[in-house]
């Protein structure tokens, strides 16, 4: 059991750096190389629901020790759309859902950081400085990415990467006719330029690169 021993000890000084936590291929233009293990990621604004799903899907599909799929936990988001996440590529059998952690949310997240590759968390309250420090330290030690959503995520210290949907438009719906088919969204990482146009989600639920094409309608397979 070399694995737990390593995770207990934390990274040794001078040891090889941990591999990055992967994101969906379409998101690599926004987050080149993937997420730094043990880092904090914020998702905010409208479209944060889909961004959270996409982060979970990326780890669930491409994460884990052999890149064959990692485990994710979702804490405090009872509305997490599992079907939509599966459409983006997530494997529901490697998801843990803690819908209502109550006031024990910090302990719950602390327990989960040891086991999973990414925790998507909506803190139910403004985190205390000590709790935030403790969770950030645990995440660093275990190489688990802490993705923060919700109104209290902005107050979390030490978040270097904040993803948001800068602008978006739904396709397929008219005035009284049609059906929601896909959404074209410009996803940006705060402070890192213009971002990328993505289908978030595409017609089959997937995340794919899109052009910013204004009025032109095109067939997306």
């Amino acid at each position: 059991m070399a694995e737990p021993a390593r995770t207990l000890a934390g990274p040794l000084p001078g040891a090889a750096p941990r591999p990055a936590v992967p994101v969906l291929p379409a998101l690599r233009t926004v987050v080149p190389g993937g997420l730094r293990p043990g880092s904090l990621v914020g998702v905010a604004g409208h479209g944060s629901g889909s961004l959270g799903l996409a982060l979970v899907a990326g780890v669930s599909r491409h994460g884990g020790p052999d890149r064959a799929g990692g485990w994710c936990a979702v804490v405090g988001l009872p509305e997490f759309g599992v079907v939509a996440a599966a459409g983006m590529g997530a494997a529901p059998e490697r998801l843990l859902l803690v819908d209502d952690p109550g006031d024990r949310w910090a302990d719950v997240v602390a327990a989960l950081t040891e086991a999973v590759d990414l925790v998507l968390l909506r803190p139910p309250e403004r985190p205390g400085a000590a709790a935030a420090r403790r969770l950030a330290a645990l995440a660093r030690r275990h190489g688990c990415v802490l993705a923060l959503a919700g109104p209290h995520a902005a107050a979390w210290p030490g978040v270097r990467l904040r993803l948001r949907v800068a602008e978006s438009r739904w396709e397929g719906l008219g005035a009284g006719h049609g059906v929601l088919r896909a959404r074209r969204a410009r996803v940006t990482a705060e402070g890192r330029g213009g971002g990328a146009w993505l289908w978030l989600p595409g017609p089959a639920g997937e995340v794919a690169p899109a052009d910013g094409g204004r009025p032109r309608l095109e067939v997306v397979a």
């Binding site: 485990w71 529901p92 998801l95 843990l96 209502d100 040891e114």
Partner: peptide, 25 residues
């Protein structure tokens, strides 16, 4: 995996048996 099972046990100790779930489509 063992690690996930251990973590889930700890969460269940905090929140009760139904506190942590796995989704089935």
């Amino acid at each position: 995996t063992d690690r996930v099972a251990r973590a889930a046990d700890r969460v269940q100790a905090l929140l009760g048996h139904g506190g942590v779930a796995r989704p089935v489509l």
